[in-house]
Structure formats: C-alpha cells, structure tokens
Design a protein around this nucleic acid. Structure first.
Lengths: 338, 338
DNA sequence: ACGCCGAGGTTTTACGTATAACGTCCGGAG
DNA sequence: CTCCGGACGTTATACGTAAAACCTCGGCGT
C-alpha cells in the first residue's frame, strides 16, 4: 500500500499513461498544468490518481534536456564557514525556492583546490551563476562559460558581468570613522583583510579619505582569529604611540584584536576602541560586544538571486548598492586622555 | 580568438564531430577517455583540439539522462548558519568533488517552510541523500523517495536508512561529567537543546547515568544565544541552591550562559563552571574560552559522503560512530566551597 | 586462395520529457 | 445533408549523450 510499485525501476510518465489508460502526452499535459480545454476533468483526475498510486516523480534530467534549462543556479563564495556567506546562501536559496529554482554551491569551500573542472564536478547543469568577488580562483574558471553572471562585491564598472550587486561599505566605513572621531580618537589602526577583493579596496579608500589628517596605519591579516590576534599583537608592540582605535574589516578580525588587547592588559573600551564589520553572531558573543557595521547578508543573497532571475527573464538588472548601518556597542568609547 | 563560436547556441558533441571530421560517437569515445585501441592517437588529438577550439562543454542534463545517474547528492541539514553544519557541508563537498560528485543542499535552511516539493525545487536530479536527524520536517518529505539515504545522528537501529553515521556524544558527555566531578562539582544544570533529535536524547541519557547520585536539573532552549541567556537567567533566579556547573548541549547555548552569568555578576569559572559542545569558533572567541566537546565536523561530512558512495557502489556500509574529545579551557574550574 | 581478426572507425538506438502537429467525433449553422 | 469548428486526445519528434552493434579494410596464418 505504501510502495505500490516495488519493482526496482522508477516509474516514468509512460507507466503512468499505461495505468491511466491514456497516452504519455496526456500525462505530460495534465501534470504540467497546461490542459485547460485540452483534456477533460475526468481524464485529468484519473491521470493524477495513477501518478499518485505509482509514486511517479518526473525525471529532472529528461525535463532539463527537453527544456534546455535547469532552473538551477550556482553560488560561488569563498567559504560557508564564514557566517556571512552562510546568510547569503540562505537568502539566495529561499528566493530561488520561491521561483522553483535550486541553488548549488561552488564545490571548493575554504579555498581547498577545486576539482580540475569545478563546473563538471558540480554536476548540476546551470542556468546562471552568482559569484562573490572574494572567490578569486573560482572566477577564473568562470571565464569562458557564457553563463549569465551576477557579481557580488565587485567593481560595477567591470563589464563581463550581467549584473552587479554591492553593499555600501564605503558608507559603512564613513559611519565608523564618524563615530570614532566624535569620540575623540585621532590615532587609528586599520586591520585589513589579506584576501584581495574590490570590497576591501573600497573600505581602505573610504578610510583614507575620512581619516585624512589623522594618524592611520594599516596591517593585513587573513580572516581568522588566530592570525588577527598575532597581527594586532605585533602592531601593539611596535615602537611609537599606540593607536587608540582599531578599525577591522571583519568581526572575526576584531575578535582577534580583543584577544590581543586582553592578553596585553589593555582594557576595551577604556584604553582601546575596536570596531568590526558584518555583525555576525560573534559580535554579540564576545565581551564587550562589538561596535560593528551591520550588513544585510540574507537580503544580499536574496537580491542577488532576484537579479539573476531578472537577467534570465531578459529584463534589465541595473546595478544596486544596498545600504548598511552602524551598530554601536560596548567595544567603542571615548579616546583615552593623552 | 577567445570565443571562437560567438553564435548563441552552445556547441554540442555533434558540432565537435563536424569540426574534427569524425562522427559524434567518436567524439564521445575520445572525450570519455575510453578509446584505447578504438581510436587512433591522431584522430583523438584532432577531436580534443576541435573541442577546445569550440569551447565544448558536455550537456550534463543529456549525460545524466543517458546514464541514469547524476553524480549528485543532497545534504539535508537544519541550518547552514550553524557553523557545525557548515563544516559538515565542507567535508561532504570535498569528498564528493574527489569522486566527481556534486552536493546540493536541502532548499529549506533555517526551518523556513520548504517549497511544496523540496525535491523538485532542488532541481538537480539526485543519486542519494545524506540527512541529519535534526532536520525533522525534511525527513518526512524523504519518505517515499526510494533514494539511498545516509542518516547522521540518528538511531542506528532505525531501518529505512541505507547507512548510519554517528558521533559518540554519549562518550562526550561522560568526559564532561568526569571532568566536572573530578573538579568537585555536585550540583548540575543541563541546558538542553529544544530541537528534538536522537543525538540530544542520547546526551541526556548519558548525563543522567553519569550523574546518578548528584543533583541534576534540566532546562531546554532553542539553539541561539538570546534564548539560552534567558533560560539560564531564569534557572539562576530559581529558588534553592544554585548549580555550580552548567552543561550545555551546544557552544551557542554555553555563550548564552556566560552572558547570563556575567550579567548577574557570577564569575566564571570561580563561581560557576560552564561547558559547551561542538567546539565552534565561538568557543575560543569568548572569555573565558569554553571547555567543550570537540566534534570532528568536517570528517563527519566526509564520512557521510563516503558511506553514500559505498552504498551507491553496492558495497556494505556498516554503522560507524566517530570518537570525540574533551577540550579543557578556561570556563571550568574547581567547584566553589559550599 | 581464403577466412579470420584486429584496428579504426560509423550507424543506430535509447534515456524520459514537453510540445507541435495531427486526427476524430459530435453538435449545430447554413 | 454538408461542412465547420470545438473538445479531447494521440502520434511523432527533438533535446545531447553514451554505448552497443555493425561495417570496412588490410595483413597474416594455413
């Protein structure tokens, strides 16, 4: 009763047709919801019944071949273990599902070498790609595939993408500096991401512009706590007056700074202010909680998918920049008296 | 020179055949690497050349249809934004890529309602499924599809799965209790996950067994910091003597406990010991760092995929339980004197 | 001289679906 | 009575690939 067709093979639309006493074409019409006026209600019902009885599930490979499209998009990000990208994926996957699309991930998380042909190893045939500019190696593999491409966090003047979607990180940095300047800070350290990406260049430029006339040093670190800790510790030990505020490209880096500060006995925020970027779960897990720039990560993924859908539908997809906001928390305070 | 065939349509194996002056079958033989003795080296080379010139990429949908398999597996987890599952995905995706497989994710992250038919909305046709028992709603949708199924964190005696893979969480809890008992603790609070899953039942049972003869209360909370904070705060405010150690089902819950403790002025570990589970990045981000049970998350994903591959190859896939380890850090210390 | 075999291909077929093109029957207008 | 057009289906075809079955030819053993 549960499994009416225990015979190994999966039932096809032809099996359903046979069971319902109609032709395969009729089955396709009925199950494809395009039969108003072409098939009688009685027949349609019997087809639906037979399909249910047999547990019929259409063969996606066959459908995709026939239709020449797959309703599948690939999301290319550097690492899902970075919570930000997990949120981006969530947004993209939900928007996709809403339109009957699926999402597959680029098969090389964490920068571990991809298969020789990543687009073959993500076996799903693709209708389009959404890619973060942070996944540099993957982008090379994308050249040559004529697939529609939505770029995230990349220079909007770059052609070669079908659409561009960005976060207003320059504004984010301006809000951070505005906040810190108002608190009296004049000596800054910028703990920047060592990953090359347009988005980090933009942040650095915005910082340099906003902090013109103050003291600003820059140090780079990979996106993990241990390296950030080390980089910050090195900077704190450097000769000359210590910065009173550390501006980080990412919450993860900021957590490393917090650890370095604590180990040196530097009190945050009394002696040192620290800011993050992204507003991940980390930001409120640590003590003090991080002042940071909140990025609409899930919306970012959602809009990226929507842009891709627009491109696929032949509609225009103008470049978009999403606003960000500053979240003031305990890790920033008035600059210490000189 | 870069794009030798600017004509809109993607080249097919027949186009390559025409360009190389051979038949389509020969192209398939050569590119399929199964031509030793069937095609001359000269011909093979000319085929490869033509393919490169045209930028030929095989149509996956057609191949999948022909071969009746897709080399694609679906991973079903509750939420990628839980770092643990992001690691599981990484492990599974890497193992998959090593065997020319792709991985797609169940299209309903975060428990947001799935599409009416999640397996249609993840458009990729599937060869098999790897599912965490924590994704309860998804599991229902799995009933009826005759797909090979590898269950993670689920009762090994449950039939209906092609293979079982578990983490030795009972041992993990025994190590936690051993550590705490040795430190002199006798009054415990178990902050348990409110998500129903076999793995949490096992942990609770192991705790009850190991802490027989001591004082043990249990409180449940969803897996996020805010709820855990509230649950812990409520427990701390309850009448009667306060527990001296809180054992959490997850690092996220433990972070919530840390926050509740700090807000009440309870010093950790001097007045209260706290343990987590998973050893996520969170565990070392907070202060004090969490004593926790390290789970081999990435290996878990890798082994899950390998088990699925074994099942698909017709090989036996006996149930496996992976060992875990205790990581002692600053959040646990000697029980305070009564 | 003849058959056989292996090398080096080609022709053909099937996978399961969606849909364009094509009947068939029946009731009503002319 | 004839003819026409819906209503209701059916037949036929194409999508691109992999691989089984088949063909051709030259050389070699007997």
């Amino acid at each position: 009763m549960q499994s009416p067709e225990p015979s190994g093979a999966r039932p096809t639309s032809r099996d359903v047709a046979r069971a319902a006493g109609v032709s395969q074409a009729t089955v396709s019409l009925v199950l494809g919801e395009k039969w108003r006026g072409r098939v009688s209600e009685r027949t349609a019902e019997s087809v639906r019944l037979a399909a249910r009885e047999l547990g019929y599930r259409p063969n996606l490979a066959a459908r995709n071949l026939r239709l020449g499209r797959t309703r599948t998009a690939m999301l290319v990000v550097p690492a899902l273990t970075n919570e930000f990208f997990a949120h981006v994926h969530t947004g993209a996957a939900l928007a996709a599902a809403r339109h009957g699309f699926g999402v597959v991930l680029y098969p090389s998380p964490d920068g571990v070498g991809p298969a020789r042909d990543p687009f073959a190893s993500a076996q799903a045939a693709l209708d389009g790609v959404i890619a973060s500019s942070m996944a540099a190696d993957a982008l090379k593999a994308l050249r040559g595939t004529g697939l529609p491409l939505v770029m995230l966090d990349s220079d909007p003047s770059d052609p070669g993408a079908s659409a561009h979607l960005n976060l207003d990180v320059a504004d984010g940095m301006r809000r951070v500096t505005g906040h810190l300047l108002e608190l009296g800070h004049r000596r800054f350290l910028h703990l920047a991401s060592a990953v090359p990406s347009w988005t980090f260049d933009v942040r650095a430029a915005a910082l340099a512009e906003a902090l013109r006339g103050t003291e600003l040093r820059t140090v780079r670190s990979p996106l993990n706590v241990a390296d950030a800790w080390e980089a910050a510790d090195l900077a704190f030990g450097a000769p000359g007056p210590r910065p009173t505020a550390v501006i980080c490209d990412d919450d993860i880096l900021a957590v490393g700074v917090l650890k370095a500060a604590r180990r040196r006995g530097l009190r945050v925020p009394e002696e040192l202010s620290v800011t993050g970027f992204d507003d991940l779960a980390l930001a409120t897990a640590v003590e003090p909680e991080l002042t940071t720039v909140r990025l609409p990560a899930e919306e970012f993924g959602r809009r990226g998918m929507e842009a891709l859908l627009a491109v696929l539908a032949g509609e225009p997809a103008p470049p978009v920049t999403l606003p960000v906001s500053l979240v003031r928390r305990g890790s920033t305070g008035p600059a210490p008296a000189v």
